[in-house]
Design a protein around this nucleic acid. Structure first.
Lengths: 212, 212
DNA sequence: GTCATCATGTAAGCCGTTACATGATTGC
DNA sequence: GCAATCATGTAACGGCTTACATGATGAC
């Protein structure tokens, strides 16, 4: 899960651990921010597996620097630039360690995105990086999720009906709200799915045009 | 978390582990069902802490039996009744172990419900059992959650605005959907909150009537 | 000179899952 | 007799959090 986030972010841009943490946190409104105790070991594992590697360039990561977001982020980036330039080669003391993704890492990212383990928390992350999937796989991702939610809705209906009326007020409200949320999610997915289908058939048409 | 679910369910009715598992699973549409490897040790801990205790009565748990829900549940309950009566005293081999909640357990349940640790998954459970809270505490539970969600919404707005336009399509769709979901949650909470306030002021009015 | 922030890491512990072991009962 | 379901437990392992250790830098 954390590997997915790391690879997804590094796929776009080289980053060091501290900055990765911030970006992971505001990726999907992740509440309590992933901890360093999880992040650094994960980076270590990925490096050992050859999915990421430390890159030397302080000048490659920082220069154009496309605005990190929060004010704190801006300040940090500014400082990082100044320090990064100075540290470059021949550093002293504790310095930033900038990671970049490797070809193997890109492959692993796609594998993780493709893996059909239906995990509530992971799905958001997969959507966040699904642009790195082939269109067909992306569509399947959405469809799997849709089926999963639809199934939960169906399960809800059959079970518990016998109790029906004499159910606690709060419990009833909770269930109804859950159902609404799931339906909202399904509607959203339906939008994504039809977009994907349109894109796919559009591509097919193009191909047909080219072929014919 | 699992303790909360156990105590909440036992508060209403004596149950054995296997049945507890089923009920926990369809409490809030919990997806992959809590595992035995978590459930039984948790029951053990709670028993050691004096929050629950094994009850002898096969006749107390089973008799009126207010319809468990799923078809499988019904069948199980039917069988349980038959077997339970037979096993009663002088059982042989592996038998059901029915647990009941103690006064200490009820106290612990309220403490767990009151504990203001803002945990996504736990909140649903707390709502499911919030009827066991004092009205004031229940209101506070809802308000804490509301504030939490509102804060997340605000955080989303300030961050990331600088990037604005040049943001991946899927990421943008995801963010928008998340925001809508949060707003939906907030609206739901607002309903619950105003209900609680009405109930509280209604009770105050009554008291005033009695006092004056 | 002290505090906040940036930055990297390690160790202990929590909470859960998966897999395993055991065994009774019922239906085919 | 064999598979499925009910029923209780243990052991190994996984992934993440908390807390700790270290150290540089800049702001007040």
């Amino acid at each position: 899960m954390i590997e997915l986030a790391i690879l997804g972010l590094l796929r776009e841009q080289d980053l060091h651990g501290y900055e990765l943490r911030r970006r992971i946190s505001d990726l999907a409104g992740l509440k309590p921010a992933v901890s360093f105790g999880a992040l650094y070991p994960a980076l270590g594992r990925l490096e050992a597996a050859g999915a990421v590697k430390a890159v030397e360039s302080a000048t490659e990561t920082a220069p154009t620097l496309p605005l990190t977001g929060s004010l704190a982020g801006e300040a940090a980036a500014f400082l990082a630039r100044r320090r990064g330039a100075r540290i470059g080669p021949g550093r002293s003391g504790r310095a930033r360690k900038v990671y970049g993704i490797t070809d193997q890492g890109e492959q692993l990212l796609v594998e993780l995105l493709d893996d059909p383990s239906t995990d509530e928390r992971t799905f958001s992350l997969k959507v966040a990086f699904c642009r790195y999937l082939m269109p067909q796989r992306r569509l399947e991702l959405f469809e799997r999720r849709r089926a999963d939610l639809a199934g939960r809705l169906a399960g809800e209906r059959t079970s518990r009906r016998t109790v029906g009326d004499r159910l606690d007020l709060y419990l009833r409200s909770l269930r109804e709200h859950d159902n609404q949320t799931i339906q909202h999610d399904i509607a959203w997915l339906d939008g994504l799915i039809s977009n994907e289908r349109a894109a796919l058939s559009g591509a097919a048409d193009l191909e047909e045009d080219t072929t014919s």
